[in-house]
Design a protein around this nucleic acid. Sequence first.
DNA 1: CTACATGCAAAGGGTTTGCAGCTCA
DNA 2: TGAGCTGCAAACCCTTTGCATGTAG
Lengths: 155, 155
Amino acid sequence: VANGCKELGYQELAEKLQHYTETQPQIKNSRKREYVLKILYSHRSHLTPEEVYLAVKQEIDPKVSLSTVYRILSFLEEAGVVRQIDLGQEGKHYEIESGCHHDHLICSSCRKVVEFFNPDLEALQEKIASAEGFTLLGHDMKLQGICRECREKKN
Amino acid sequence: VANGCKELGYQELAEKLQHYTETQPQIKNSRKREYVLKILYSHRSHLTPEEVYLAVKQEIDPKVSLSTVYRILSFLEEAGVVRQIDLGQEGKHYEIESGCHHDHLICSSCRKVVEFFNPDLEALQEKIASAEGFTLLGHDMKLQGICRECREKKN
DNA sequence: CTACATGCAAAGGGTTTGCAGCTCA
DNA sequence: TGAGCTGCAAACCCTTTGCATGTAG
């Protein structure tokens, strides 16, 4: 993501999570919550709940359950430290809320996901929305294409 | 959709479907297929499979089954006369393949969907994709906002 | 000790599939 | 008449929920 935005580090995300739990006094700390955040942070890709579950299980704690992962993902989303993204047909994916807005470019061949940010695009969206009488709240855009590697592989 | 593109009429869509069935000699004609196409054409909105099912049932033929609607929607998609679109969390939606590319603007309050086309946006996407080494195949974009009516209602 | 967090298994919702009967050509 | 089409019910997959147990504070 080539723009001036500085992405949050793991420590900052953990603090944001910590702060959220403190605003809700009935919430207790939980190891598994940290594990899920750590996995989403270290795998810099976009994981499905199932993939998060397997990664936590293999890399940190063999006794997690899938339902806990689901519960934790919803929790982290509410806390604003992770975000759900839609990459097409392949179900829900989660990524950490890095604090830097970006969109996604997906290779139709190898399924690689590249993040990008383009200020002109943001400006254009504002223009389109207001032309239709809308106050823009957000957007979601994905580009599908073939990446350089896949293109060269085919030749 | 304010651009120079002329949208296909129902007759043209039916012909396109007809042509597709002829390229696949084992396929037979079917009333229900026409019904589904007709419903998607007449309801100019974006319907879920369930909504298509209910509309066919109420407006044309009370004895359709939901599974048939699912099968037909896949069929029509393959024939290139309908298209699946993703409007967010609310599940799969289908719209007719009008032949005029457009994107969607969704009101977060009343859920109204407005179609738009912007040539600058198309050009910008090409630029972004090639900057990342991708050959662009397609894209998918939705803007979320509050429409004029909803905004005025709140004031 | 009490309330939240977790694992397990069961329930849900949306979609697909197997099969017997129906329909088109 | 035979292959494709359809309805029905069951199977499926992904996700959520109920409940008994574990654990943080």
